[in-house]
Design a protein around this nucleic acid. Structure first.
Length: 544
RNA sequence: GCCCACGUAGCUCAGUGGAUAGAGCACCGGUUUCCUAAACCGGGUGUCGCAGGUUCGAUUCCUGCCGUGGGUACCA
């Protein structure tokens, strides 16, 4: 429909010169009696042409009326302060069904970014403990964004960045060692800043079972740390798998050191006089790169701060040839990326290729109290527990249904108690209902046909048709804007329109040709719901 | 102090430079001899945090203030 509008405006521009430079935007009006599409072009031209918007609208309409095919558009109307409203014919609206039945699970995909490569980095939790509900939001948003990019043509690599060295990991190893010694009956002192979680004891238990007391003299950075890392990573992978997330690669920060990539960056900064030494530390001249203050990149102890490996890591991503690099992290990391981007820019990289997505925190409510989560203090709810409790579909939907810049209030009690009232069931039920109708229709020997789609002319049918015809554009726009929650919103609206159609328009029992056309519509709707849920990583059940 | 995000119905949250600001939950009532009632229909509440500004038009954009969360390290 929109394509048709663009075409007729292109033709109209031949007669009305001012339309040539104008960018004409079509919107779906909030009110359905304002037409299927509307444009405010006459109002935006008011200033430029110094003419009354209604007069401009009238002139445009007069030209358009010469061009339009009345089999496609049945009415053009000027309304309100100068909107031009377009009403499509029911027959034309119904044609979308053929397109969908033809494209099936491909419907909604587009090729705009075909041939482009994207890297989406998400989760990226260090292996010091199980994934928490907080990580869950990051994981689900990241995977869904990756799905969306694939739908518009990108080839996407999902990547997990982690660091298994450093202070936190040392403490992890020592936490395990202390628990191990405790199991052997030794009197230990377990500091508050150590990892308090039960999983530490389980790892220690496993080591005791396997090695008895032979590890007494081992270093905390040896087998204790290694085993903890291995077990925790297995646990993280399993959790991710349980919500259908599969990483293409796990990028280890240590590789940057081993492959001298850190040194390369340091050298570059030094040679280009972008860094200097002071107080025994190496400083990056960020004040010359548009950032307020210079920052340390190598501490006086010789250890780099996070900025340096992060710059080296992104340099590596650039060198791998991605057209788009997406970083996803929580608002607690919001302050870190400008420094990293500035460093990369100074090295000559096109930082416009990097899209940093920052999602706000998940606030956990339990028994009316907000819980401050901390992996170290073992004060958290694991993602695994949540998935076991409410299922993967609910977890994924819950984390994606809100805009990423909005705080997410997660009431654990409510999620457990009212999980059946989660809106995801509303979508899934629409899908299951259609499956059920199709089965019934088959038993009644009603065969799908696209020969009489013009019979789909009731209000409920027309609204449904217009909604499904917007799907491809929804996917494209929301992907370009990185707004995955809008896919969920769209599907909820679609499901609502379907449920209404279901109530008002019967299939079994209707005259044969109408029943056949309605079957075609039902299959088209089912396809769109299924495709939409696929993007969200949520299942589309045949039965509920 | 400074930086970022958010502030919309009782609650959780959508939404938009335009035509009457929405959904779910919760509450009350109705719909099933008929393809799944996990549904549908009806009933109502808003100083769109506050105050200015830009605009033909602002809840949307800008500024200030207030509130919430996050950041502000030679932690990540």
């Amino acid at each position: 429909m929109k394509n048709y509008l663009n075409r007729i405006f292109a033709q109209a521009a031949k007669k009305l010169a001012y339309l040539k430079e104008a960018s004409v935007i079509f919107n779906v009006p909030a009110q359905s009696d304002h037409g299927d599409f509307a444009t405010n072009i006459a109002m935006t031209l008011t200033k430029k042409l110094k003419r009354n918007p209604k007069e401009i609208a009238q002139e445009i309409c007069d030209v358009l009326k010469e061009i339009i095919d009345d089999k496609v558009i049945e009415k053009i109307q000027i309304a309100g302060p100068g909107f031009i409203n377009f009403y499509f014919t029911p027959e034309y609206a119904a044609q979308i069904v053929k397109v969908i039945l033809n494209q099936k699970e491909e419907y909604g995909k587009s090729k705009k970014y075909h041939g482009k490569k994207a890297n989406v980095e998400f989760v990226s939790a260090n292996p010091t403990g199980p994934l928490t509900v907080g990580h869950g939001r990051n994981a689900v948003i990241g995977d869904t964004v990756a799905n969306m990019l694939e739908w518009v043509g990108y080839e996407v690599d999902r990547e997990y960045y982690f660091n298994n060295a450093g202070r936190q990991m040392r403490i992890l190893g020592d936490s395990v060692k202390k628990r191990y010694l405790e199991l052997l009956g030794e009197d230990i002192d377990f500091p508050e800043e150590y990892y308090q979680g039960e999983y530490i004891k389980e790892i220690a238990e496993e080591l005791k079972k396997e090695f008895g007391d032979k590890l007494k003299g081992e270093s905390e950075e040896g087998i204790f740390k290694e085993r903890a890392e291995k077990i925790i990573f297995e646990d993280i992978s399993k959790t991710l798998e349980s919500i259908s997330i599969k990483m293409k690669s796990f990028f280890n920060e240590n590789d940057l050191y081993e492959e001298k990539k850190i040194d390369e960056v340091l050298e570059y900064f030094e040679q280009n006089e972008l860094s200097y030494k002071d107080d025994g530390a190496v400083w990056l001249k960020l004040s010359e790169l548009g950032i307020e203050k210079d920052k340390v990149i190598v501490k006086s102890t010789g250890e780099p701060t996070y900025r340096l490996p992060d710059i080296a890591y992104h340099k590596d991503k650039f060198e791998r040839g991605y057209d788009l690099i997406v970083d996803l992290f929580g608002s607690d990391h919001a302050a870190t990326y400008p420094d990293v981007l500035a460093g990369l820019k100074a090295m000559g990289f096109d930082v416009d290729k990097i899209k940093v997505l920052i999602h706000q925190f998940v606030t956990i409510m339990e028994k009316g109290q907000t819980i401050k989560m901390s992996t170290r203090k073992a004060n958290y709810i694991t993602l695994e527990e949540l998935v076991n409790e409410v299922g993967s579909d609910v977890v994924r939907y819950f984390f994606i249904m809100r805009s990423i810049s909005s705080h997410l209030n997660f009431d654990i009690d409510l999620a457990k108690k009212h999980s059946e009232e989660n809106p995801v069931f509303y979508l899934q039920y629409a899908h299951a209902r259609i499956s059920s109708i199709l089965k019934m229709a088959e038993e009644e020997n009603i065969v799908l046909s696209v020969e009489n789609l013009e019979l789909l002319n009731t209000d409920a049918e027309q609204k449904l048709l217009k909604k499904i015809s917007l799907f491809e554009e929804e996917v494209l726009i929301n992907t370009e804007n990185f707004e995955p929650h809008k896919i969920a919103n769209y599907l909820e609206e679609l499901a609502a329109l379907f449920h209404k159609f279901y109530t008002e328009c019967r299939i079994v029992g209707s005259p044969q040709e109408l029943a056949q056309a309605r079957i075609a519509l039902a299959v088209a709707v089912k396809t769109v719901i299924k495709n939409g849920l696929t993007i969200l990583g949520v299942s589309a059940p045949e039965k509920m």
